[in-house]
């Protein structure tokens, strides 16, 4: 077996760029999906039936599908639905957002449900509007319960971004697979890819543990 690890070093800038795109994709998805999740959770609780039904359908559909399928589906269906030629990046971002918003919605829903009913009533009794009750009283308290779950979701998302490589979004996985097929340095590049994910993901996983210890609900 002859191995040539220099390929990893010589493609370091490409790999770094891919890694940066992975982080960007993760951050953007989360940035959109946290408000998206809150909105969906609120819509599910709406007294207006069509709204709650739509939100329930949205959440149940997009959290019960393989992400890879969602990525392909977005790739083929989005251009037809919107009539626009969307870049792979936007398509991948959309698929990730659909998926993660659905998860976040469940996270927020159970966080909100964990707050005693009387808390909301105390706010209403002071003359607060429902929006004020939610923003001033429910959300700040639910946040503590929601944060650890969101942190776990973040790490899953970081890993899941690798799946948009199948529609040629130039993030880490796609970049590494490309270099692999051009250079035929399969073992070296795949190992480098795994190592870079590990280097980035391991501290995140540890951070999640710390957040769970700090904020986690103790029984």
């Amino acid at each position: 077996m002859n191995l040539d690890w220099s390929i990893v070093w010589s493609s370091r800038w490409l790999l770094l760029e891919g890694a940066a795109l992975t982080v960007l994709l993760t951050a953007l998805t989360m940035l959109i999906s946290v408000p998206g999740g809150i909105l969906l959770a609120l819509m599910r609780g709406s007294r207006f039936k069509p709204v709650s039904l739509f939100a329930t359908g949205f959440v149940e559909l997009f959290r019960n599908l393989p992400l890879l399928l969602l990525v392909y589906w977005a790739f083929y269906v989005m251009p037809v639905l919107t009539g626009l030629a969307l870049s792979p990046f936007v398509t991948g971002l959309t698929a990730l957002c659909l998926n993660v918003s659905a998860y976040n919605s469940e996270t927020f829903r159970s966080g909100i449900a964990s707050i005693r009913k009387g808390q909301g009533e105390a706010g209403l009794a002071l003359g607060m509007s429902r929006a004020q009750v939610f923003g001033e009283i429910i959300l700040p308290q639910a946040w503590r319960r929601v944060l650890p779950v969101l942190a776990s979701t973040w790490v899953s998302l970081f890993k899941d971004t690798s799946l948009v490589s199948v529609i040629a979004v130039g993030e880490l996985a796609h970049t590494a697979m490309q270099i692999r097929s051009q250079s035929f340095r399969v073992l070296e590049m795949l190992t480098a890819m795994a190592a870079i994910y590990w280097l980035m993901g391991y501290p995140q996983a540890k951070l999640v543990d710390w957040i769970h210890r700090k904020y986690g609900v103790r029984e």
Binding site: K159, S162, L163, S165, A173, L187, L190, M193, A194, K206
Partner: peptide, 23 residues
């Protein structure tokens, strides 16, 4: 355990399928 929490399944799969045979 912590490594598996850090590395995507996708990466594990392609590594096993493409890299292990070389090794």
């Amino acid at each position: 355990i912590d490594s598996m929490r850090a590395i995507p399944v996708f990466v594990v799969l392609v590594w096993i399928y493409f890299a292990v045979p070389i090794l």
